[in-house]
Design a protein around this nucleic acid. Structure first.
Lengths: 346, 346
DNA sequence: TCTGCCAATGTAAACGTTTCAAATGTTCAT
DNA sequence: ATGAACATTTGAAACGTTTACATTGGCAGA
């Protein structure tokens, strides 16, 4: 007997029927203690473990949820997955994880694979939530899903996010409040992230409100961490900026590094702010100023939300969680003289 | 017809048998182009997607691998999972991800859940690879598995890792070479990570070789990022250290932060070195000196390795990948005067 | 003793695949 | 015309569960 023991084997061993065994395993309460004991003894003796695939085939639901994130390399997504996992674990749900690498093309393939697995529902962070074929597919097939970090325009889609535009608005304002008038936003490419665009909108709104005309934008491929060249002109050129607003903390950390590489100090010469609130931001020097979102909590919420949808709860609601500005020291007051000196130095 | 279309539906629609449909889907080459066309038309028309659970039940293998990591919050593991995912994706394998949160108790539960899913094999990063009940279970059940980051004592277990002791030895030596004689290692608790212990061993070996008697050790819970108190005495006390070797880069970043909090500069007053080589280490100031392991590559390798075992390749081999020291500037030459000044300053 | 009821257990039919063995058709040399 | 050889296709039996329904037996009430 080399193959794995099945329920039938347990039944034979315990002299009971396969149905009783099944009941002992799934509804322990509905079976007399003695029989349960016999069965569990056989289970232990044979080292039996239920084949979940048999169950999944029979049952209408699989107690499995699919998760799609752009990448695990950015701690903001890794942390959200942690939250999802925790909550899933507590509920005895299995998580199927995939990543798109920010590639809209791969999103469909990944979701397709998840659907083939007959997941009960999905948690997705999409490149672009609006006009997305994946969203259309899911709606058409009536598969419950929750968007995470996306802020779709349509109101009938469940989504958990912070207010992206407002986050960017706030961090930008924090710089403006310190006297900065010449700012650039460093953002991931808009095609790869609607968050990027929304955050850029918030950045622009803040500048507009302050009556600042000049709006610089530097876009980089996702995963790129070398900002030395992309920022050269804006840091050293004739109309050099004094503040860099980054659409993610990862970019902010890279921006600080680039400033240093150009001989500029942060926040002495240039101020830098980020968005996301990844934990490492609080450990580096200067401590990163960021619009912090409750990332892990958002993951948990997303799963809780999804469970509701799976249970049949209708009318998906979007949830905008509050963000807050962290008290870092990567944003400083403008000091015209210091900035001039360092920019002429090169 | 609200329920999902099945293969039977496709067969009916295309006027062919269910067996032919199956063949078109699984072995497209072995079927005349015309019939294939008819079938795929029906598939498209019905929006049919194969139910993987049906297949998994019938087949002996599931084309699914289970992955267990301590946490995704540490980029070193997140990155390795990225590597695993990439390779799995290319092979059309599904990844089931779980995390133990460094808790040995939870390892068994997590692996058990993965086995219930009938994964074809496992990639595990265990708290402690030696005398581990999970390892025993897997060996007993003859489930292929590969350890990642673990360096087990037994030679008959497949494992992919760098040489942990040697990594620590090298980074420690780098400090000694700069004149440091008073060193501490900051490590995660040994019960939660055999890597920690192995790295501590390497640290000790380097000190021994240099004839340094005093071996300081500070152990912290995993996930802990506040080292201000744990390091207070060793940074400010009478026999303050000049160098901190950390068993992970995350700890190293936290250690640098703690030094700053105590008014000490890195590397001016204290040198700090890490192990792992997480990417953010290269972006912060000072650039982190670290014993770098090819994390993502290790993930890919682990999966490639696992595929071999699943295919029946016997005699699992361990693989020690090379590490290298990164050229950072968190390790500086000893400057007795400077160190004294700053330590008396407080 | 019989009836009816209830608790405990068992029987058997799915669930959606894959795949072996068998059936059907087609081609071609004889 | 016959049948061998082959290319296609099909029927049907698993795979390991869950669960509606049937069966069993014990026991209370008459």
């Amino acid at each position: 007997m080399s193959s794995k023991p099945t329920m039938r084997d347990v039944a034979r061993k315990s002299g009971l029927s396969i149905a009783t065994v099944s009941r002992v395993i799934n509804y322990p309460g509905e079976v007399p203690a003695e029989t349960a004991e016999i069965v569990t003894a056989a289970v232990r003796y044979l080292n039996y473990r239920p084949n979940i695939n048999g169950r999944r085939l029979k049952m209408t639901h699989t107690r499995t949820v699919g998760v799609l994130v752009p990448t695990l390399a950015n701690p903001v997504f890794a942390t959200s997955v942690q939250g999802i996992e925790q909550e899933a674990n507590e509920e005895g749900l299995t998580v199927l994880l995939t990543s798109s690498n920010y590639d809209p093309e791969r999103e469909m393939g990944a979701v397709s694979a998840l659907l083939n697995n007959r997941v009960d529902g999905l948690i997705l962070t999409l490149a672009n939530a609006d006009n997305n074929p994946v969203v259309d597919l899911l709606l058409a097939e009536k598969i419950p899903f929750v968007l995470l970090f996306n802020q779709p325009e349509r109101a009938d889609i469940a989504a958990i996010s912070v207010d992206n535009a407002q986050s960017a608005f706030d961090i930008t304002n924090a710089m403006i409040a310190k006297g900065h008038r010449s700012l650039v936003m460093v953002a991931g490419q808009f095609e790869s992230s609607d968050r990027s665009r929304q955050r850029y909108d918030g950045f622009c709104r803040a500048l507009d409100q302050a009556g600042i005309e000049k709006k610089h934008l530097v876009q980089v491929r996702f995963g790129e961490t070398d900002l030395v060249e992309p920022l050269r002109d804006l840091l050293l050129g004739p109309d050099a900026v004094t503040g860099i607003v980054c659409s993610t903390d990862m970019l902010a950390i890279a921006a600080i590094s680039a400033c240093r590489a150009h001989g500029l100090s942060v926040p002495g010469d240039v101020s830098v702010g980020g968005i996301d609130g990844i934990s490492v931001g609080g450990l580096i020097t200067p401590k990163l100023c960021s619009a912090v979102q409750p990332t892990q909590q958002m993951g948990r919420q997303a799963l809780a939300f999804l469970r509701g949808l799976i249970k049949g709860q209708t009318n998906p609601q979007s949830l905008l969680l509050p963000h807050h500005l962290s008290d870092g020291d990567s944003i400083g007051s403008i000091r015209g003289s210091s900035r001039r000196r360092s920019s002429t130095r090169v």
